[in-house]
């Protein structure tokens, strides 16, 4: 598998990640080599093998439908980069 400039642009866009030029070269080569390394998985017979997403194949628990969290808005406001009137601020998205 070879990653070209267009592939890297697509991945960076999907991941919302800006990359500078020096970084692009280094990352492109190393991603190629990672994908080469993991291609060993292709030769394995996985016919009828169930994918394993959790080490103990456990089902996620359900909890009682009761409120157990206290309001922590003021604590979260303190760690937000930009807040106003209890709202997170982002660059304008609607003209």
């Amino acid at each position: 598998m070879h990653i070209d400039n267009a592939d890297l642009d697509r991945l960076a866009r999907l991941a919302r990640l800006g990359l500078d030029n020096g970084e692009r070269e280094r990352l492109m080569a190393s991603i190629d080599s990672v994908l080469d390394m993991v291609s060993a998985l292709r030769n394995v017979d996985v016919n009828a093998v169930l994918p394993m997403a959790h080490p103990h194949d456990a089902q996620l628990r359900l909890r009682a439908d009761e409120v157990d969290e206290v309001d922590c808005q003021s604590a979260l406001e303190k760690i937000a980069p930009e807040m106003q009137s209890g709202l997170y601020l982002v660059p304008k998205v609607i003209e």
Partner: peptide, 30 residues
């Protein structure tokens, strides 16, 4: 971190998910 985010994005992306991520999970079980 960027390298791993990009590799992770690749193996989860449309067209590659089955060949990489799903297969890795099957090998994980083996």
């Amino acid at each position: 971190v960027k390298r791993r985010i990009l590799v992770g994005t690749f193996v989860l992306s449309a067209g590659y998910y089955d060949a990489y991520y799903l297969r890795a999970q099957q090998v994980r079980r083996l």
